[in-house]
């Protein structure tokens, strides 16, 4: 079992919910990422998604697109992200999920990535733009290296596809709260409830919900339905606005704490 699996066991045992934090690795520059991750962890993030910047990020809204551009301009590649992960792992046991588009992975090589990611201390991988119908070879390579494979389920996913997502996912299933790309929204989509119900009926895996979540109120509402909540763009925007500011880490930590309070006291 990976650190991801152990995290969800602990959360269940303690009656707590998990906060998953996404940031784009290498934004504003690779050397800065480990300190940002440490700040998120100090603020209470339970799992970190390390986004691999990609030239054509079709799942992402403008905030994360811009982060990807900054990270690429700073020379970040998939290999750089693995090095960043290894650096984080030296001082932390926080579960790390590699969040990436497919093409850099194909270029790097499936088996090579699985081995190098495991060696870097990464616990699992999520491919944003791979169809689950063709995920067999990828999932097998990751599982051989002891990594989890997390798949995205959307409100528009068909029952057949939800079955495959449940079949190939390990660690947890990532539910996309609505149709469209990543980015903050004022209110949560009504599509989440039915998607949670559909997924619960076919899998016992923990569920996390992401896309559009940026406020403690969102965290509170979703925390009543699923095991973990993912926040991405709101963190990335904070990094964008304060990249040149020495208080960035402190701000990131305090925003994480504020979001985490949305869950309330352990049940």
């Amino acid at each position: 079992m990976t650190r991801i699996g152990r995290l969800f066991e602990c959360l269940k045992r303690d009656g707590r919910k998990g906060l998953v934090a996404y940031i784009t690795a290498g934004d504003p520059e690779p050397a800065r990422t480990p300190a940002l991750v440490e700040a998120l962890v100090r603020g209470g993030a339970d799992l970190i998604e390390l986004g691999v910047p990609f030239s054509d990020p079709i799942a992402d809204g403008p905030v994360i697109q811009r982060a990807g551009e900054r990270a690429l301009a700073a020379g970040t590649s998939l290999k750089t992200v693995l090095e960043i992960a290894a650096g984080i792992r030296e001082g932390s046991e926080v579960p790390l999920l590699l969040f990436t588009y497919l093409n850099p992975v194909i270029r790097y090589g499936l088996d090579r990535l699985a081995q190098d990611a495991a060696r870097a201390g990464i616990d699992g991988c999520l491919l944003t733009d791979a169809s689950v119908e063709e995920a067999g070879e990828y999932a097998a390579a990751m599982h051989r290296a002891g990594l989890d494979t997390v798949f995205l389920a959307a409100p528009t996913s068909t029952p057949r596809r939800l079955q495959l997502i449940a079949q190939y996912s390990t660690g947890f299933v990532y539910l996309v709260s609505r149709t469209g790309v990543t980015g903050e929204r004022d209110s949560l989509s009504a599509a989440v409830g039915p998607l949670v119900q559909s997924m619960r009926s076919i899998t016992g895996l923990p569920l996390a919900v992401g896309f559009g979540i940026s406020k403690p109120e969102h965290v509170a509402e979703l925390g009543r339905q699923v095991e973990a909540v993912v926040v991405g763009s709101a963190f990335v925007r904070l990094i964008e606005r304060n990249a040149g500011n020495s208080s960035l880490e402190i701000q990131l930590e305090s925003f994480t704490r504020e979001l985490k309070r949305g869950f309330g006291a352990p049940a």
Binding site: F54, S55, S77, L78, N103, P104, R107, Y108
Partner: peptide, 10 residues
Amino acid sequence: YLLQDENGQV
């Protein structure tokens, strides 16, 4: 076939 760099960036 895709025009891309050695890191898989398009």
